[in-house]
Amino acid sequence: MATIPTGLKNYFDQTGEISLFAWRFMREAFRRPFEFREFLRQCYIIGYNSLFLVITTGFIMGLVLTLQIRPTMIEFGAVSYMPQLVGIAIVREIGPVVTALICAGKIGSSMGAELGSMKVTEQIDAMEVSGTNPFKYLVVTRIWACILMLPLLVIAADAIGLWGSFLVETTKGEVSVRLYFNRVFATLQFGDLIPATLKTFFFGLAIGVVGCYKGYHSKKGTEGVGRAANSAVVVASLLLFVIDFLAVLVADIFFEI
């Protein structure tokens, strides 16, 4: 009988375990007791503490995108379409994906390392003997916070990205704010906004589930904590592209993008 290569077996094992972990989250997410205070704390850590990084990246993303595309658009005599092009690119794809990747790096690794460290120093066990469900307290609150904060961070990154793009346009082409944003919003439709926003909830879910799973199942002491943080970023980033691909396919069916 043919044997499955170890690498492939590990891949399927881990996919199955992460799916079960996500399923456990679904079951626990709507059950009492709700750890509301810890949830708010996580919203602050995930949302507010990532805001500066996300808006800085968003601003630079808008600047660079416009600077790179502009010469080609001039060549084709289509520079007046710059606001529409940049608007659609940022809102539909670049804003959500780049922000999610930044968050996978920042939030995913921090969750992996924090929960991993709690696991190896027996803090999770201590929580359990204190009569607390550590999965609810540590995992459910973090994943919920990720799901709810990521769309807000993406909206912030999109808005700042468009302002970055406007800055280049107005410097090089003397376009007014009103004209620039009129053109951006004239092109954007619900078919652009809704799928782009909906997929960010799934991005948040993926980052939260993978980050928490890697930390919660961390092994082999401090070496395991480093590995948990590292693989949380790698797996979450990979998963983001898979989700993005599926979201575009689904959006194509329902919204004819």
């Binding site: 924090e114 460290s117 709690m118 120093t121 027996e122 803090q123 066990d125 201590a126 929580m127 003997v129």
Partner: peptide
């Protein structure tokens, strides 16, 4: 039933 863990297991945060 109190439990004192080997590494103290105080919550870091």
């Amino acid at each position: 039933v109190g439990f004192l863990f080997q590494g103290s297991a105080l919550y870091d945060s």
